[in-house]
Design a binder for these strands. Structure first.
Lengths: 242, 242
DNA sequence: AAGTGGTCTAGACCACCGT
DNA sequence: CGGTGGTCTAGACCACTTG
């Protein structure tokens, strides 16, 4: 994985940025980099394009490639890189204790909305799994998920008390790698207030959407109602995103 | 702009997908596409990579390239493509009337937090601009923005009653093309409730972050408090994002 | 074994920026 | 004008999937 040339160059350039190795925040031009790394210019361009996409550097035609000053000042913000999915299944808890309480587990016919979102035909069945996620004992997220039984026929209540995505990776050799999510907010319902310890004027954040396997199969439709103090979604938007 | 070969191929393939031209949702292999479009395989790969990044197709090494079924079923969701920034300045109002009410306009020394976010030195000054955005007469967003005076010395109250980004594009030939934003939610404050017509238990969505110019200069630090029924942020997450 | 996407090369030519 | 990044080519070789 990490033995790809362009990945090694990306990491090396990130390190050199962090070590403040570039004067005026200006990187050497692509032809020089190609020379010094002993690779083709195309490979340098590939590495720099990815760094630009991540917001680490800015490229300006005719002038050169420059370090994003914010990457130096506030590098922690950029750690979201490639880890946004973990937010949901394997909650990124930075060392804190994450536990799951199973609230509901059943198999039902897929409703029209679920059929739509999971690309199912009529008469197909799904698991309906409702879980409460706690971090350090504090309830944070009420998560309701729907998974086609045909995609994980061996699922069990014991399994869903832990990471479902890890399970299907290990046991079914399927991997979730894409998702399409909507982020919204709403006043909390009675149930939210009870489960998440909210008062009536405190809201929930809502992340709702579909998770896909590598091959494009919709795997799960999930709605997460998040304690408002714990919803913090960071995103880097790049309009030059080809 | 649109006369680039890879862009034309992207558009053409999207049209062919929409016209249901591919059997089994499977695209021709890259070598055939290269032949039929009379371009190199590299250019085909470039087009397909971008489509994969956008979630329009899925590529599977060894088997082929496939249409994302959700792209067909629910194409409207994918219209977010490359238009997320517009959410903020030029609100994407789909034909509805968007107006701005100026609440506050002054020049002040940059606070420590603003200095940090806009990469300013001490003793630098910023515009502080507070605006209420209405759509079809309904108040939707309270937006507080900070812009270094040195980046837009000619700004005036009249200007900020309209799109600031359009202004600096037209007059200063600077273009905002990137942003780093956080999305959160909070109970509404008294002021939120008054300005946005909310009751006490109704929350606001918060989008807060920095907008950058093409060359990486931080241009504006902005916090938007959004009527909860109007915050809907759609995002496609791809863990294989190189 | 055949088919398919992934990585990498070496180089031509173009478009934009600054001196 | 020289320097810089952007686009595109033509092809070699590798890695994975499927029959």
């Amino acid at each position: 994985m990490a033995d790809l040339i362009y990945r090694k160059i990306i990491n090396d350039i990130k390190n050199r940025i962090f070590d403040n190795e570039f004067q005026n925040n200006k990187l050497p031009d692509e032809r020089s980099l190609s020379e010094s790394y002993q690779v083709s210019r195309s490979t340098i361009k590939r590495a720099l394009n990815i760094l630009a996409q991540q917001g680490v550097v800015f490229k300006k035609r005719g002038s050169g490639t420059f370090v994003n000053p914010l990457y130096l000042k506030n590098q922690s913000l950029f750690q979201y890189e490639g880890n946004n999915l973990g937010v949901t299944d394997n909650i990124s808890t930075a060392g804190q204790e994450s536990t799951i309480k199973l609230l509901d587990y059943q198999v039902t016919p897929a409703s029209a909305e679920i059929q739509q979102n999971l690309f199912l035909n009529e008469n197909e069945f799904v698991y309906q799994i409702k879980r409460l996620r706690l971090i350090d004992g504090k309830p944070i997220i009420i998560e309701t998920g729907y998974i086609p039984i045909k995609l994980a026929p061996e699922l069990s209540p014991d399994t869903v008390r832990e990471s479902i995505f890890n399970y299907i990776d290990d046991k079914e050799h399927k991997r979730v790698s894409k998702s399409f999510m909507s982020i919204m907010t709403e006043p909390s319902t009675k149930e939210d207030q009870e489960l998440l310890n909210l008062s009536t004027n405190e809201p929930v954040g809502i992340m709702s959407g579909t998770f896909f396997l590598d091959d494009g199969t919709p795997f799960e439709f999930s709605t997460m109602r998040v304690h408002y103090q714990y919803l913090n979604y960071n995103t880097f938007i790049n309009l030059n995103a080809d």
